[in-house]
């Protein structure tokens, strides 16, 4: 049960932005700008952005965000969808590009302790072709999910157990993006 009265029975962050559209609006605009548009010189696809979000949420053990963003990533990867679960299971052996692996390493350090993002991990990503925009977007995706995860868990929002609930969410996120639901 959520820690506060949300007056709706939506799951996860959706329940929070319906309860408080004043903060929900910038939170969804940020997700849309980061996960769908990105920096001008960035080489990251929407699917890769969703995978970074799911990966950080998995590291933070926020099941709702992990499952919903993994579902969005699977939808956007299409035929390559299995790479999502392979990455969440083991980054070292997952069949992702060297560039994405290097960026996921940066994301991992941002989520854990941002002071550990050293010059050498950034250089390693650049050597694999990452641009300034890729580094920027990776750091801010990882930082923002360090916020979204804490917001969703800190208020103990409803987390569906049924995997099919997330498939529908992933398809909606993959097609419509981040559109604020109607407020309570």
């Amino acid at each position: 049960m959520p820690h506060i009265q949300l007056n709706n029975d939506a799951p996860g962050i959706r329940s929070l932005v319906m309860y408080r559209p004043d903060t929900g609006k910038p939170l969804y605009e940020l997700a849309q700008a980061l996960l769908r548009a990105g920096s001008a010189d960035s080489t990251l696809s929407d699917a890769e952005r969703e995978l970074i979000a799911a990966f950080v949420s998995s590291q933070n053990r926020t099941f709702f965000c992990q499952q919903s963003h993994a579902a969005a990533a699977r939808y956007l990867y299409g035929e390559q969808a299995p790479v999502v679960d392979q990455t969440l299971e083991n980054l070292e052996t997952a069949p992702v590009s060297f560039k994405l692996r290097a960026l996921l390493t940066i994301a991992q350090r941002v989520a854990d302790d941002a002071r550990t993002v050293t010059d050498d991990v950034v250089e390693a990503a650049r050597a694999e072709g990452a641009t300034d925009g890729d580094v920027h977007d990776t750091v801010l995706i990882a930082a923002s999910f360090s916020m979204y995860n804490r917001y969703v868990d800190g208020l103990a929002t409803l987390t569906p157990d049924d995997p099919t609930a997330y498939t529908a969410m992933g398809e909606r996120m993959g097609t419509l993006g981040y559109v604020l639901p109607r407020p309570n």
Binding site: I106, R109, V110, A111, A114, R115, V117, D119, V135, H136, V139, L140, A142, A143, S146
Partner: peptide, 8 residues
């Protein structure tokens, strides 16, 4: 905090 420190 992570945005500010993660980009040094």
């Amino acid at each position: 905090n992570r945005y500010v420190d993660g980009l040094d």
